[in-house]
Design a binder for these strands. Sequence first.
DNA 1: TTTGTCCAACCTTAACAAAACCTTAAAAAA
DNA 2: TTTTTTAAGGTTTTGTTAAGGTTGGACAAA
Lengths: 227, 227
Amino acid sequence: MNLLIIEDDKVLSESIKETTKEMFQIEQAFDGEEGLYLAEQNIFDVIILDIMMPHMNGYEVLEELRKKNITTPVIILTAKDGIDDKIKGFKVGADDYLVKPFHREELLLRLEAMVRRSVGSFKENILSFKDLHLNLKNKTASIGEEVIKLNGKQFDLLEYLINNKNTILTKEQIFDRIWGFESDTSTTVVEVYASNLRKNLKKYNYDQFIKTFRGLGYMLSDGEGNV
Amino acid sequence: MNLLIIEDDKVLSESIKETTKEMFQIEQAFDGEEGLYLAEQNIFDVIILDIMMPHMNGYEVLEELRKKNITTPVIILTAKDGIDDKIKGFKVGADDYLVKPFHREELLLRLEAMVRRSVGSFKENILSFKDLHLNLKNKTASIGEEVIKLNGKQFDLLEYLINNKNTILTKEQIFDRIWGFESDTSTTVVEVYASNLRKNLKKYNYDQFIKTFRGLGYMLSDGEGNV
DNA sequence: TTTGTCCAACCTTAACAAAACCTTAAAAAA
DNA sequence: TTTTTTAAGGTTTTGTTAAGGTTGGACAAA
């Protein structure tokens, strides 16, 4: 996680570095031009930007950045607390605006919130077992590049198995989980679905990992932890 | 663009509604439980959340929401300005924290910054999916040079799908988002609109990207986001 | 210890049933 | 008029059941 601090006050810059160093890899720029140059590399996850700096002020840096389509989240950190300053800051493309003096913790929290969102939206909800990946968001399964078509309950079954890999699940557990307690179909459907799932995975030789334990149930085994 | 205001002070709630109504469609909740219920529908672009409310306070609402994987951006709006309160707010998952009393403009700016990031290109008014472009300002759709005629709700549906591409949207979500909670028509209209939309996109072979997931809902897929 | 038999548990398939969804068109509303 | 909603029939997918085949292990006899 990379943070760029653009701040001409070296004492403050160091102090910020100190408070944030546990969460980020840090680069520092001590004037606007240097800051802009570094930010343009587009390798940072978030930027802390001071406004009042010699030569090129923070507004100009940010405006230039956005003009160049660098969308890195920027938090403005400044002593200017007038509403007009804030308006200007947001208008040129800031994501947050924090007034000096501030609490260390608040800066950290705001950085964290910002990063959580920009990183979090990228990472999808993926559940994996070896090279088999389930995208929980759009209910698609894939092995390597290839997409495997699984219908609703087959997907649910596989998800349940992966979530409990290397532990035996009884047919009753599986049934209650996927079909629901009150369902009045018999638990033999589980066998049918296990069969269907195996058939769909056979092509990729992943059916072998679904092991059945007579009288006990099923287990998805990665073949390492042989009980 | 949908905004949910969770605030028990009706005067303040109305005042917020007044300042934001040009930018958003607004729903109001006047206590925590109602707010949680509405927020769970997951159809809002941003939520304004008060902390001190009877029965269920803002922290609890937000914590519960995040627990349920609802990641809608939340801005906390409260009179509590202690650093510990802010810490608590961010820890439970807030994206921003604004202390009362506040400037109207600042709230607007922060809302805008938040939405700009999560929805993207809020300002440009153009929403794109491959070569299909929606001009949000005048509600026209086009592919390449050619203009596609879409009536109101068809356009809304397409907009909602694009904004959530590669994630499955249930018919209920779509319905609540486009027709509104209090609408008393049935959710089967969603099927009709999906059908109409597909028909209108068929000419350009874009109907293929609207995938239906039986028992789950619909998804606009660009066919890349597997794994 | 090995071999053979038997049975319960499990697998697989396919047919049928039942949801879920699509499409169209007509009625209603704006 | 144009757009929205409702309703109805048709289509497709998925869920369920049942039947016959297969397998593994218990157990007894060699």
